[in-house]
Write a protein that binds this DNA or RNA. Sequence first.
DNA 1: CTGAAAGCGCTTACAG
DNA 2: CTGAAAGCGCTTACAG
Lengths: 339, 339
Amino acid sequence: MAVTINDVARVANVAPSTVSRVIANNPNISIETKERVQKIIKEMNYHQNVIASFLANRSTKIIGLVVQGVTEKAFGHPFMPEIIRGITSMAHKFGYRILISSAEDIKEEKELISSLSSDGIAEGLILTTSRIQDPSIEQLMKQKFPFVLIGRPSDSEQINWVDNDNFSVTYELTKHFIGQGHRKIAFLGVSSEIIVTLDRYEGYKKALEDSGIELEPNLVVRGKFLDNSGYDMMKNLMDRGVDLTGVIACDDYIALGAIKLLTEYGIRIPEDIAIAGFNNTVLAEHSIPALTSVEIKASVLGASAFELLYHAIHDQRGDFGHTIIPAEIIQRASSIREF
Amino acid sequence: MAVTINDVARVANVAPSTVSRVIANNPNISIETKERVQKIIKEMNYHQNVIASFLANRSTKIIGLVVQGVTEKAFGHPFMPEIIRGITSMAHKFGYRILISSAEDIKEEKELISSLSSDGIAEGLILTTSRIQDPSIEQLMKQKFPFVLIGRPSDSEQINWVDNDNFSVTYELTKHFIGQGHRKIAFLGVSSEIIVTLDRYEGYKKALEDSGIELEPNLVVRGKFLDNSGYDMMKNLMDRGVDLTGVIACDDYIALGAIKLLTEYGIRIPEDIAIAGFNNTVLAEHSIPALTSVEIKASVLGASAFELLYHAIHDQRGDFGHTIIPAEIIQRASSIREF
DNA sequence: CTGAAAGCGCTTACAG
DNA sequence: CTGAAAGCGCTTACAG
């Protein structure tokens, strides 16, 4: 039904191989036949069957992207589309396309990764979920299938990954609070499974330490990173009468929830309590007061992930790349007293 | 390098075709050979090369999804991931995967669609951009390539599409305002190219008409649907001294911008001016006051789009499906005086 | 129930 | 500069 290279060859009175060479822009083909064949290709409305050429070439120019699904709601988090955008735009430059799949739970994710890494479609994988001790990752390493993580894994040497400098930016952010006279600064949203939050927590701890402020355990609130639970976390702190003047939340959603609670309690921001979040979502600038946040440059993370993956696929050297994207504190009214 | 069907056949002492039948779960194969072959497949860690089977089968079980890129920022809009999620989860049930591509501008989008529709990878396409008079759409129709639009097109008969009942939900929303005594209701964000906004505008107009309220042209503000320009739109209205007590914005972002301006001007919401948005983004519930919005059920839109596409690919009948997903008004403090 | 053979549509040494 | 042939890894009538 669809017109093939053979149809074109017949009409053009050449061998199929010649048509193939014209398509591939092979240099040693006479300009006349080239033009003639090209004309006929146009006329016959021929389009290359990429699947067939994949098989012959053993190259698909497709990479797989695995994101989390419904359950964790991460797909709905504003930074995910940004990451995807970064990946696709960089991939496009290299002539690559993205096969996107989402997994609802760990089990599904494991199956997904297992098939994506062996069914011959994807040449490499980008994973957006970096948990502590992920079995899928070990599997990929064993298979020597090229992959890149967005988010530093716990055992980080023999793996390609991109991440922000979570430790140092949180250090800076904490210093920003301390510099304004805050001593009692809460830290919301540490989760022992999610490495980003642990890195941020370390930065927070170190900044306190360097400023001679003792870490107060009851200022540190555990909780799911992407949960909408900032309201409850903050309520819990306030209702327990914990003394504090500053709040650093591991995510804007958490910070926004906290702001909502504080507003309801008639507490002024930033006069009574200063607050900051992470990920610089649109929520941050729209918040009242506007929320200080950390711009993680999600699209740059995505683009860098693709670059690492590209090298992993094409360079035989077998070394591993780690790219650190500097995050940036965006100061807004919520954390600046003189605003 | 990778183990093939022939390797397995050799070890199992059967023909490659037998191995193929075992993999395909072909019924007429003896249980003994089946089990023996399956065992060897496991042992040798054989994985089917899907690309080869694509070629032999003439079926890829992949559909393409085209979204807008950087320029229009739509990819960053919270409903886009929701749509993608709906598509992927439904596709997963049918064993399909999604190849996602983003286009930065109309030209790129045209090229993208042209290659996706003819390179043999995707069996069908879902498009998220429905503009007035899209040349790509005409092209696809001419090629008879299966595709579905998310968002009703202007010439809607011979095309598969899914959409909300934008007219009637906006009618209801406007009635909700009128029911609370509002007569001067502004409408923000009509754009002549974007059909959704036109449909919503019609619903607004009809509700006014049915209530005997005359349409005031200077209460209707044009503007890009996804722009962050609600602040400016509202400022313009206020500075011109336009008399109003209600605002319906075609998108939450626009509504949020308007709220920000109103808050700065010391205008109380909803006491002085009531306001509502569309798309029920997380922003809406986090807003202060919480923003009345319209839940468009983006993931259901996505899922339905896949279902239509699946039929378009597999049913030969050549008829066209139109699915309308009822949107739902979520009443919150911003539009309810007695709250 | 199983095998030999042709075919899916392309690519690429090899020979001339 | 061009063609004939083998091959990429699978599938599927056809024959037995």
